[in-house]
Design a protein around this nucleic acid. Structure first.
Ligand code: MN
Ligand code: MN
Ligand code: ZN
Ligand code: ZN
Lengths: 144, 144
DNA sequence: CCATTTTATGCAACTATGTTGCATTGAAAC
DNA sequence: GTTTCAATGCAACATAGTTGCATAAAATGG
């Protein structure tokens, strides 16, 4: 996904030592074009050497807490993880195929959100906006 | 939530017999001001007489499949259920408090979505759009 | 009305995802 | 080198949701 991101720097920029497991998890997330489940990440990281499932969950919690990674809700039972918006990666909506379950990142500007009314009237503090589209993906449309 | 919805009619309108358990589940969803988890629904329905947890899940699957109810993703491990948009209930965004976990329905017009670019360029078929806001709710702001 | 078929329900067992407690290891700090 | 603290692994647990199968309740057809 990203030739521009230096994962060690990203970790350091939020006070995390760039130790091997953190680097491995963050790289897997960063190099993939669409968000991955914890399971996906665990299996991918495992291919390059041992790591415990729990360690992956703990690293994910840490990366989300520090704001490097976004935890995205999904229509299934698991959550998904993708790079949080940063100067190289603007926030963008996601599309979930109801037929095959695939998730795609959409262009940042393909869906625009107008929140003026909300900002003027909402008494809480909005910290993030997630836009999820559901439907049938290109591939599944062809097959049908 | 709704004085205008006739739940039996709604069920019939999509080919489902308005049998008691379906009615009880749909009423609980319809009369609540914000989406509920399957667990919430099970406990609420249980107060008015016996029902099995699995039966609730099966009814929820059915109502979602028929489009009467929307399954909303949540930041936690469970999904939430609310009335699907219909003439009495326009689609609207939801707000999830990161501190207390509460979910609120927002005004339908408080957040506007502009999808022209997407519609012009996206090769799949978009069937639904979910807008989720996260942050700190009014109550939690006060407490902090 | 009874017999047959279909649909809904309950229960137990299971799967998937994520979490916790605790012991062990490994890397800083002194 | 010893102490200290963070990171890891492992087992056990928790929670949400699913499946298979038997039973009960409706609907259907005489
Ligand atoms: Mn993405
Ligand atoms: Mn709502
Ligand atoms: Zn698809
Ligand atoms: Zn709150």
């Amino acid at each position: 996904m990203c030739q521009r991101c230096n994962y060690a720097e990203l970790l350091e920029s939020c006070g995390l030592e760039p130790i091997p497991n953190r680097m491995r998890v963050l790289e897997v997330i960063g190099e993939n074009a669409s968000p991955l489940s914890a399971q996906d990440i665990f299996m991918t990281v495992s291919r390059t050497g041992g790591i415990n499932r729990v360690t992956v969950y703990r690293i994910l919690d840490l990366l989300v807490e520090k704001g490097l990674v976004d935890r995205l809700s999904s229509p299934g039972r698991s959550q998904m993880y993708g790079m949080a918006p940063n100067p190289n990666h603007p926030a963008h909506p996601h599309f979930h195929c109801r037929t095959c379950g695939a998730v795609q990142c959409l262009q940042p500007e393909s869906v625009k959100v107008e929140m003026e009314t909300l900002e003027r009237t909402f008494a809480g503090e909005v910290q993030a906006v997630e836009i999820r589209l559901e439907g049938i993906c290109r591939n599944c449309l062809k097959r049908a």
